[in-house]
Amino acid sequence: MVYTLCLLLFMIGLYGVLTQKNLIKIIIGLGIMEYAVNMLLIMVGYRHDGIVPILDRAMPLDEFLARAVDPLPQAMVLTAIVINVAVLALSIAIAMRLYQKYGTYDITEIRQLRG
């Protein structure tokens, strides 16, 4: 059920990318897609009644292993977030440059290349 919601969010993002005409809105759509995937990734590691996967002195190792959530998806999400930051910054920079050259954010007016 929760996974479906993530996929729904992903679809909303994709819809935004495909239908919007404003460069900034397209970038926002892209962001929504990426967040949906990140949420899905976090939920993959979810465990009912889980604890933070940080080893503590007071906690016996067996109990820790039995209860801690999967830390690998969290590391993956962190990596994905770093990549998203880079992409976001680059896309914003290109969008600003495009605005400088064309004087508009409307993608239907930015059409020099065809064929």
């Binding site: 896309s91 969008a95 440059r97 050259k101 930015i110 020099q112």
Partner: peptide, 8 residues
């Protein structure tokens, strides 16, 4: 112009 549009 071309480069930016293509890159975007």
């Amino acid at each position: 112009r071309d480069e930016l549009e293509a890159a975007f």
